[in-house]
């Protein structure tokens, strides 16, 4: 692999960090407009992060060293996972390091430490959040893996770059399996990024929290890292869906023009996905925790049907 490829991979990775708050801001903005509010500026998440980084960090007496290390681990693991998802070009050097199963593994690593951090201080809410997060993700992770396995079996590769290339080569095919995989992955993305109807990122009622309950005790730069990691995860799922299922526009050679076009197209796709998310969050109400399994079972069912319809309808003989 050439140095330009690695440089490009680094640029893409940095772009992820830079874009993540923007997507969160966009979703918030659209949601506000849908609710007839003007909403905060698109750049508000950046300002929040800046402010949090400048603030002093506090920590409970009862917290251990893990509490301080966790934000860094969570952020780095999420970021590495994101760096392996093709953003602008499918010719991504880092995609060979981490295929889609590794990405899922890195996200799971981040979640593992997030949940542990929630339990570290020894408060009731933290433990509750950790328990719920692991519960939801235990059901969501198989669905996610099944959905991406459908893609991987079709493309004969778990490498996301290869999957995107394969998609571009046969872009005009209608695959029943992809319809299901996409639907399943959308549901998983909602659950995993803690959006309505599974979790509510803006809730102020502790008893309904999942993600927020785990990071209740964080402040200052620790909190900023945790929030940023969550935004990064949202972006990761957005890009995964946008670039794998709708790969059009992604740069196939490393020219400035193609990359610029890819960026514009990508932003367009993400804006569209953001609108879809905002609309669904506006029209849906948060579910009770014990309705979530039904939601996630639907995701798993869709993903499994995707696999079966690949096996039955597409492979043929």
């Amino acid at each position: 692999m050439n140095p330009v490829g690695w440089l490009l991979a680094l640029v893409q990775a940095l772009l992820y960090i830079a874009l993540a708050p923007l997507l969160a801001g966009w979703v918030r903005k659209v949601k506000a407009r849908l609710q007839n509010r003007r909403g905060a500026s698109l750049w508000q998440p950046y300002q929040d992060l800046y402010k949090l980084f400048a603030k002093e960090a506090r920590m409970a007496h009862t917290a251990s060293i893990l509490f301080r290390a966790a934000p860094y681990i969570v952020f780095v693991a999420t970021w590495l996972a994101a760096a392996a998802v093709p953003l602008l070009t499918s010719d991504l050097a880092t995609a060979a390091i981490a295929d889609v199963i590794v990405i899922a593994g890195l996200l799971a690593l981040a979640r593992f430490f997030l949940a542990l951090a929630g339990m570290d201080v020894g408060t009731a809410f933290g433990g509750m959040g950790a328990s719920r997060e692991m519960f939801v993700s235990a059901l969501a992770e198989p669905a996610m893996l099944m959905a991406v396995f459908t893609l991987a079996m079709t493309a004969h590769s778990t490498n996301l770059s290869a999957v995107v290339d394969y998609q571009l080569a046969g872009a005009n095919l209608l695959r029943p399996s992809y319809v299901f995989a996409l639907a399943g992955l959308l549901l998983v993305a909602i659950a995993e990024t803690g959006r309505i109807p599974v979790d509510n990122p803006t809730t102020h009622l502790e008893l309904t929290m999942i993600h927020e309950a785990m990071i209740l005790e964080y402040s200052g730069r620790h909190l900023a890292l945790m929030e940023w990691a969550a935004q990064l995860k949202l972006l990761l799922y957005g890009v995964l869906i946008a670039n794998v299922f709708f790969p059009w526009g992604i740069a196939r050679d490393v020219g400035a023009g193609a990359l610029g076009l890819a960026l514009v197209v990508l932003l367009g796709k993400l804006m569209l996905l953001g609108v879809v998310l905002a609309v669904s969050e506006t029209v849906l109400a948060k579910m009770r925790l014990f309705r979530a399994p039904a939601f996630l079972n639907l995701a798993l069912l869709l993903a499994l049907l995707g696999l079966l319809s690949y096996v039955i309808l597409e492979v043929g003989a």
Partner: peptide
């Protein structure tokens, strides 16, 4: 592939279980 799904579910549940073990025994 269904076996693979079971394997994925198992892995996720194992992670949940060890968050429980470590969180309850060593943290707090």
């Amino acid at each position: 592939p269904i076996v693979a799904a079971v394997l994925a579910l198992t892995g996720a549940l194992a992670a949940a279980c060890f968050v429980k073990v470590y969180g309850v025994a060593f943290l707090g």
